[in-house]
Protein backbone atom coordinates (compact mmCIF):
# COMPACT_ATOMS: atom_id res chain seq x y z
CA UNK A 1 0.00 0.00 0.00
CA UNK A 2 0.98 3.60 -0.24
CA UNK A 3 3.80 5.00 1.77
CA UNK A 4 3.34 6.78 5.06
CA UNK A 5 4.18 10.14 3.59
CA UNK A 6 1.04 10.09 1.45
CA UNK A 7 -0.81 13.27 2.23
CA UNK A 8 -3.36 15.38 0.40
CA UNK A 9 -4.38 18.74 1.72
CA UNK A 10 -7.50 20.52 0.51
CA UNK A 11 -8.19 24.08 1.58
CA UNK A 12 -11.29 25.98 0.56
CA UNK A 13 -9.41 29.24 0.43
CA UNK A 14 -6.37 28.31 -1.57
CA UNK A 15 -6.58 28.04 -5.32
CA UNK A 16 -3.44 26.29 -6.44
CA UNK A 17 -2.09 27.17 -9.82
CA UNK A 18 -0.27 24.12 -11.01
CA UNK A 19 -0.91 21.28 -13.37
CA UNK A 20 0.13 18.86 -10.67
CA UNK A 21 2.28 17.03 -13.17
CA UNK A 22 3.33 14.39 -10.67
CA UNK A 23 -0.22 13.28 -10.13
CA UNK A 24 -0.93 13.22 -13.85
CA UNK A 25 2.19 11.14 -14.38
CA UNK A 26 0.96 8.67 -11.80
CA UNK A 27 -2.18 8.29 -13.89
CA UNK A 28 -0.37 7.79 -17.21
CA UNK A 29 -1.93 4.35 -17.61
CA UNK A 30 -5.33 5.96 -17.46
CA UNK A 31 -4.41 8.50 -20.14
CA UNK A 32 -3.34 5.65 -22.35
CA UNK A 33 -6.51 3.67 -21.66
CA UNK A 34 -8.67 6.68 -22.47
CA UNK A 35 -6.77 7.04 -25.73
CA UNK A 36 -7.22 3.39 -26.57
CA UNK A 37 -10.89 3.65 -25.69
CA UNK A 38 -11.35 6.52 -28.10
CA UNK A 39 -10.04 4.42 -30.97
CA UNK A 40 -11.93 1.33 -29.97
CA UNK A 41 -15.22 3.16 -29.73
CA UNK A 42 -14.98 5.12 -32.95
CA UNK A 43 -14.75 1.99 -35.04
CA UNK A 44 -16.88 -0.46 -33.07
CA UNK A 45 -19.66 -1.92 -35.17
CA UNK A 46 -18.30 -0.53 -38.42
CA UNK A 47 -17.49 -2.80 -41.36
CA UNK A 48 -14.30 -1.10 -42.49
CA UNK A 49 -13.12 -0.35 -38.95
CA UNK A 50 -9.77 1.44 -38.62
CA UNK A 51 -9.65 1.78 -42.41
CA UNK A 52 -11.81 4.86 -41.89
CA UNK A 53 -8.81 6.68 -40.41
CA UNK A 54 -7.23 6.48 -43.87
CA UNK A 55 -10.41 6.73 -45.93
CA UNK A 56 -11.78 9.96 -44.53
CA UNK A 57 -8.71 12.13 -45.26
CA UNK A 58 -8.40 10.40 -48.62
CA UNK A 59 -11.94 11.32 -49.64
CA UNK A 60 -11.63 14.81 -48.18
CA UNK A 61 -8.48 15.41 -50.19
CA UNK A 62 -10.11 14.11 -53.36
CA UNK A 63 -13.05 16.46 -52.88
CA UNK A 64 -10.71 19.40 -52.17
CA UNK A 65 -8.70 18.56 -55.27
CA UNK A 66 -11.82 18.59 -57.42
CA UNK A 67 -13.44 21.69 -55.92
CA UNK A 68 -10.56 23.97 -54.96
CA UNK A 69 -7.97 22.61 -57.36
CA UNK A 70 -9.87 21.84 -60.55
CA UNK A 71 -12.98 24.03 -60.34
CA UNK A 72 -11.77 27.07 -58.38
CA UNK A 73 -8.23 26.61 -59.68
CA UNK A 74 -6.56 27.88 -56.51
CA UNK A 75 -2.77 27.89 -56.55
CA UNK A 76 -0.88 25.26 -54.59
CA UNK A 77 2.59 26.79 -54.87
CA UNK A 78 3.38 24.33 -57.65
CA UNK A 79 2.93 21.32 -55.42
CA UNK A 80 0.85 18.37 -56.66
CA UNK A 81 -2.67 19.36 -55.65
CA UNK A 82 -3.70 16.11 -54.04
CA UNK A 83 -0.65 16.06 -51.79
CA UNK A 84 -1.05 19.75 -50.97
CA UNK A 85 -4.60 19.25 -49.71
CA UNK A 86 -3.71 16.02 -48.00
CA UNK A 87 -1.01 17.65 -45.83
CA UNK A 88 -3.17 20.69 -45.11
CA UNK A 89 -6.07 18.52 -44.13
CA UNK A 90 -3.90 16.25 -41.96
CA UNK A 91 -2.50 19.05 -39.82
CA UNK A 92 -5.82 20.84 -39.60
CA UNK A 93 -7.62 17.65 -38.55
CA UNK A 94 -5.07 17.25 -35.80
CA UNK A 95 -5.65 20.80 -34.62
CA UNK A 96 -9.42 20.87 -35.05
CA UNK A 97 -9.99 17.35 -33.75
CA UNK A 98 -7.99 17.89 -30.63
CA UNK A 99 -9.57 21.30 -30.00
CA UNK A 100 -13.15 20.16 -30.46
CA UNK A 101 -12.64 17.07 -28.31
CA UNK A 102 -10.95 18.89 -25.45
CA UNK A 103 -13.60 21.59 -25.59
CA UNK A 104 -16.27 19.11 -24.51
CA UNK A 105 -14.06 17.37 -21.95
CA UNK A 106 -16.21 18.39 -18.98
CA UNK A 107 -19.61 18.00 -20.56
CA UNK A 108 -19.20 14.68 -22.29
CA UNK A 109 -17.44 13.10 -19.31
CA UNK A 110 -19.63 14.61 -16.60
CA UNK A 111 -21.02 11.19 -15.68
CA UNK A 112 -17.54 9.92 -14.85
CA UNK A 113 -16.20 13.14 -13.38
CA UNK A 114 -19.11 13.49 -10.99
CA UNK A 115 -18.74 9.98 -9.59
CA UNK A 116 -15.07 9.49 -9.07
CA UNK A 117 -11.94 11.54 -8.65
CA UNK A 118 -8.97 11.26 -10.95
CA UNK A 119 -6.81 14.08 -12.29
CA UNK A 120 -9.26 15.88 -14.53
CA UNK A 121 -6.64 16.91 -17.04
CA UNK A 122 -6.07 13.28 -18.05
CA UNK A 123 -9.05 13.42 -20.39
CA UNK A 124 -8.05 16.50 -22.43
CA UNK A 125 -4.48 15.22 -22.55
CA UNK A 126 -5.66 11.89 -23.92
CA UNK A 127 -7.80 13.79 -26.46
CA UNK A 128 -4.71 15.52 -27.81
CA UNK A 129 -2.80 12.25 -27.89
CA UNK A 130 -5.50 10.43 -29.82
CA UNK A 131 -5.64 13.25 -32.36
CA UNK A 132 -1.86 13.03 -32.64
CA UNK A 133 -2.09 9.30 -33.33
CA UNK A 134 -4.58 9.95 -36.10
CA UNK A 135 -2.14 12.47 -37.55
CA UNK A 136 0.58 9.84 -37.39
CA UNK A 137 -1.58 7.45 -39.41
CA UNK A 138 -2.28 10.18 -41.98
CA UNK A 139 1.46 10.79 -42.14
CA UNK A 140 2.11 7.24 -43.27
CA UNK A 141 0.01 7.91 -46.34
CA UNK A 142 1.57 11.33 -46.87
CA UNK A 143 5.10 9.99 -46.63
CA UNK A 144 4.28 7.39 -49.29
CA UNK A 145 3.03 10.13 -51.60
CA UNK A 146 6.07 12.30 -50.86
CA UNK A 147 8.42 9.47 -51.75
CA UNK A 148 6.45 8.81 -54.92
CA UNK A 149 6.38 12.44 -56.12
CA UNK A 150 10.00 13.07 -55.11
CA UNK A 151 11.09 10.03 -57.11
CA UNK A 152 9.24 11.43 -60.09
CA UNK A 153 11.05 14.74 -59.56
CA UNK A 154 7.84 16.68 -58.97
CA UNK A 155 8.66 17.53 -55.33
CA UNK A 156 11.67 18.90 -53.46
CA UNK A 157 11.09 18.57 -49.71
CA UNK A 158 13.41 20.44 -47.32
CA UNK A 159 14.33 17.41 -45.30
CA UNK A 160 17.23 19.26 -43.68
CA UNK A 161 14.61 21.11 -41.68
CA UNK A 162 12.89 17.94 -40.50
CA UNK A 163 13.52 18.68 -36.78
CA UNK A 164 11.45 21.84 -37.25
CA UNK A 165 8.38 19.59 -37.34
CA UNK A 166 8.73 19.00 -33.62
CA UNK A 167 7.97 22.59 -32.59
CA UNK A 168 5.33 22.77 -35.34
CA UNK A 169 3.40 19.84 -33.93
CA UNK A 170 4.09 20.85 -30.35
CA UNK A 171 2.74 24.36 -30.77
CA UNK A 172 -0.27 23.13 -32.73
CA UNK A 173 -1.02 20.71 -29.92
CA UNK A 174 -0.51 23.36 -27.23
CA UNK A 175 -2.70 25.86 -29.05
CA UNK A 176 -5.56 23.40 -29.48
CA UNK A 177 -5.18 22.12 -25.92
CA UNK A 178 -5.14 25.65 -24.51
CA UNK A 179 -8.18 26.85 -26.40
CA UNK A 180 -9.96 23.55 -25.84
CA UNK A 181 -9.48 23.60 -22.08
CA UNK A 182 -10.50 27.26 -21.97
CA UNK A 183 -13.72 26.52 -23.81
CA UNK A 184 -14.45 23.38 -21.81
CA UNK A 185 -14.04 25.33 -18.55
CA UNK A 186 -16.41 28.02 -19.74
CA UNK A 187 -18.94 25.53 -21.07
CA UNK A 188 -19.47 24.24 -17.55
CA UNK A 189 -21.44 27.46 -17.14
CA UNK A 190 -22.32 28.44 -20.68
CA UNK A 191 -23.23 25.67 -23.07
CA UNK A 192 -23.56 28.18 -25.90
CA UNK A 193 -19.84 28.07 -26.52
CA UNK A 194 -20.15 24.56 -27.89
CA UNK A 195 -21.99 25.77 -30.95
CA UNK A 196 -19.40 28.45 -31.39
CA UNK A 197 -16.63 25.85 -31.50
CA UNK A 198 -18.38 23.92 -34.27
CA UNK A 199 -18.71 26.65 -36.84
CA UNK A 200 -15.86 28.73 -35.43
CA UNK A 201 -13.44 25.96 -36.35
CA UNK A 202 -14.86 25.78 -39.87
CA UNK A 203 -14.51 29.53 -40.34
CA UNK A 204 -11.01 29.46 -38.88
CA UNK A 205 -10.03 26.80 -41.38
CA UNK A 206 -10.99 29.06 -44.27
CA UNK A 207 -9.09 31.89 -42.60
CA UNK A 208 -5.97 29.72 -42.41
CA UNK A 209 -3.77 28.59 -45.27
CA UNK A 210 -5.20 25.07 -45.40
CA UNK A 211 -6.68 24.89 -48.88
CA UNK A 212 -4.57 27.72 -50.26
CA UNK A 213 -1.00 28.89 -49.69
CA UNK A 214 -0.11 32.28 -48.20
CA UNK A 215 1.31 33.31 -51.59
CA UNK A 216 -2.19 33.15 -53.03
CA UNK A 217 -3.21 36.09 -50.87
CA UNK A 218 -1.92 39.33 -52.39
CA UNK A 219 -0.75 42.25 -50.30
CA UNK A 220 -2.45 44.57 -47.85
CA UNK A 221 -4.75 44.02 -44.92
CA UNK A 222 -5.86 40.52 -45.81
CA UNK A 223 -2.33 39.20 -46.10
CA UNK A 224 -1.34 40.89 -42.87
CA UNK A 225 -4.29 39.39 -41.06
CA UNK A 226 -3.43 36.00 -42.46
CA UNK A 227 0.17 36.32 -41.29
CA UNK A 228 -0.97 37.06 -37.75
CA UNK A 229 -3.22 34.00 -37.68
CA UNK A 230 -1.56 31.67 -35.12
CA UNK A 231 -2.26 28.66 -37.34
CA UNK A 232 -0.47 30.15 -40.36
CA UNK A 233 3.07 29.45 -39.20
CA UNK A 234 2.47 25.76 -38.35
CA UNK A 235 0.64 25.23 -41.65
CA UNK A 236 3.25 26.86 -43.85
CA UNK A 237 6.18 25.44 -41.91
CA UNK A 238 4.69 21.97 -42.15
CA UNK A 239 4.46 22.29 -45.94
CA UNK A 240 7.83 23.97 -46.22
CA UNK A 241 9.55 21.01 -44.64
CA UNK A 242 7.52 18.22 -46.22
CA UNK A 243 6.64 19.65 -49.60
CA UNK A 244 9.37 22.23 -50.12
CA UNK A 245 7.13 25.29 -50.46
CA UNK A 246 5.83 27.56 -47.74
CA UNK A 247 5.94 31.14 -46.53
CA UNK A 248 7.10 31.53 -42.95
CA UNK A 249 7.25 35.12 -41.68
CA UNK A 250 8.32 36.36 -38.27
CA UNK A 251 4.83 37.74 -37.52
CA UNK A 252 3.35 34.30 -37.97
CA UNK A 253 5.89 32.60 -35.76
CA UNK A 254 5.55 35.25 -33.07
CA UNK A 255 1.78 35.01 -33.20
CA UNK A 256 1.83 31.23 -32.87
CA UNK A 257 4.22 31.31 -29.91
CA UNK A 258 2.32 34.09 -28.16
CA UNK A 259 -1.15 32.71 -28.72
CA UNK A 260 -0.19 29.16 -27.84
CA UNK A 261 1.55 30.14 -24.60
CA UNK A 262 -1.25 32.48 -23.58
CA UNK A 263 -3.89 29.85 -24.38
CA UNK A 264 -2.01 27.21 -22.41
CA UNK A 265 -1.61 29.36 -19.29
CA UNK A 266 -5.15 30.68 -19.42
CA UNK A 267 -6.58 27.29 -20.33
CA UNK A 268 -4.95 25.51 -17.41
CA UNK A 269 -5.84 28.33 -15.04
CA UNK A 270 -9.51 28.23 -16.02
CA UNK A 271 -9.55 24.45 -16.08
CA UNK A 272 -8.06 24.18 -12.60
CA UNK A 273 -10.65 26.60 -11.34
CA UNK A 274 -13.55 24.91 -13.08
CA UNK A 275 -12.57 21.38 -12.05
CA UNK A 276 -12.99 22.16 -8.38
CA UNK A 277 -16.69 22.79 -8.51
CA UNK A 278 -17.99 22.12 -12.01
CA UNK A 279 -19.76 19.03 -10.73
CA UNK A 280 -22.13 21.35 -8.90
CA UNK A 281 -23.14 23.31 -11.95
CA UNK A 282 -23.21 20.82 -14.77
Amino acid sequence: MSEDSYHIYVDAKKQPFSMNLREIWAYRDLIWLFTKRTFKLIYKQTVLGPLWIILSPLFTSIVYTVIFGKIAELSTDGIPQFLFYMTGNALWSFFGGSLSQTSVAFISNAHVYSKVYFPRLTIPISNVISSAIQLLIHMVLIVCLIVFYTAKGMLHPNLAYLPALIPVLLFTAVLSFGIGTMVSSLTTKYRDLNFLVGFGLRLWMYASPVIYPVTQVGNGVLRNALLWNPMTAPMEMFRFVLLGAGTVRWQSVLSTVLFASAALVLGIMLFRRAEKTFVDTI
Binding site: M1, V10, A12, Y113, V116, T277
Partner: peptide, 28 residues
Protein backbone atom coordinates in the same frame (compact mmCIF):
# COMPACT_ATOMS: atom_id res chain seq x y z
CA UNK B 1 -13.34 11.98 -2.53
CA UNK B 2 -12.29 15.34 -4.02
CA UNK B 3 -14.98 15.26 -6.66
CA UNK B 4 -15.97 18.74 -5.62
CA UNK B 5 -14.22 21.30 -3.44
CA UNK B 6 -15.48 22.60 -0.10
CA UNK B 7 -16.50 26.25 0.28
CA UNK B 8 -15.06 26.62 3.77
CA UNK B 9 -12.62 24.77 5.97
CA UNK B 10 -9.81 22.43 5.13
CA UNK B 11 -9.21 18.72 4.92
CA UNK B 12 -6.28 16.35 5.27
CA UNK B 13 -6.20 12.92 3.71
CA UNK B 14 -3.45 10.56 4.79
CA UNK B 15 -4.12 7.73 2.41
CA UNK B 16 -5.18 6.82 -1.04
CA UNK B 17 -8.93 7.18 -1.42
CA UNK B 18 -11.05 5.15 -3.77
CA UNK B 19 -14.73 5.62 -4.06
CA UNK B 20 -17.75 3.71 -5.19
CA UNK B 21 -20.35 6.41 -5.35
CA UNK B 22 -22.05 4.55 -8.11
CA UNK B 23 -21.40 1.09 -9.31
CA UNK B 24 -19.72 0.81 -12.69
CA UNK B 25 -18.62 4.40 -13.07
CA UNK B 26 -16.68 4.67 -16.28
CA UNK B 27 -17.91 1.37 -17.61
CA UNK B 28 -18.43 1.59 -21.29
Amino acid sequence: TRITAPTTGHMDLYGKVTSMLEVGTGFH
